[in-house]
Design a protein around this nucleic acid. Structure first.
Lengths: 146, 146
DNA sequence: TATTGTTATACTCTATAACTATA
DNA sequence: TATAGTTATAGAGTATAACAATA
């Protein structure tokens, strides 16, 4: 575990990381495959892709929105054919939300588009820079999941 | 310039980068110093910090927002004492927006808070991982500005 | 006539409060 | 009585259309 309080270099690196990550994410976010989906709708699909299925209440907690908002979001996604709602097997108050194949395809297309954009940026690097970034990619992934 | 079309490893690295950057940025965004400022208001202050001054029209283009929206945002920021508006020296149709010292202090505090959060995540890495990330930080910065 | 910025108005997204159904 | 989800309503943020002032 690095001690960041002592080295000025570390502090500069953290600052550079924060700035770059925020700026890069803003540009990646603009690379959208479907303009008709709100950020939260996209995020819900992403959550479903990771977790398989979830109840509206679970989704509300994970997305940090209130239950009534999630009711509306899920209804919109259903009307667009991106999720389907089924009765909960054990509790008749709850519902189970599952993403459709169409949603999966859309997410894959979205990832593909953003990857292509990022790849086009990477073309502006030289081999040595890209090697450094490639080596850091798994670390950045670990960091994001900590 | 790396050729990303041939190496599967490169493709995987790009994918990991995209995913990590998006996820990390979402978590950093939650580290806010002032809940009363909307994301776009914060972004406008950041743009002013980088560019010094700008007209409302320039800000609207940079933030990908329509002019009437920027009118409202600038008015809100002015009412909060975070920017000041002055007449344009050469064109009397335009105005010049400048951030105040208070805005600068708030931005610095915001950066400080996000850096602290990111530093706390970095504590979860070992020395080797952190070295890789530190080496990649300037490259990531260059990438974000390409 | 074109451009900058504003006003008036409507739409989208989310929140709070009150309600229904089930546990 | 508590919990899951919904309905009704209000607030924040942004967009479009129409307008005023200046180039």
């Amino acid at each position: 575990m690095p001690d960041l309080t002592t080295h000025g270099d570390d502090e500069a690196a953290v600052n550079a990381l924060r700035s770059a990550v925020m700026r890069l994410s803003r540009r990646l976010k603009h690379q959208r495959v479907d303009e008709s989906l709100s950020p939260t709708e996209m995020s819900v699909l992403g959550t479903l892709a990771r977790c398989g299925t979830a109840t509206p209440g679970e989704l509300a907690r994970k997305e940090h929105v209130q239950p009534p908002s999630m009711t509306r979001i899920v209804a919109l996604l259903e009307s667009k054919g991106l999720v389907k709602l089924e009765p909960h097997p054990e509790d008749r108050r709850q519902k189970v939300v599952t993403q459709t194949e169409r949603a999966e395809a859309m997410l894959e297309e979205s990832r593909r588009k953003r990857n292509a954009f990022l790849a086009s940026l990477v073309e502006g690097l030289d081999e040595e820079e890209w090697a450094k970034l490639r080596a850091a990619a798994p670390v950045l992934e670990k960091l994001a999941h900590l």
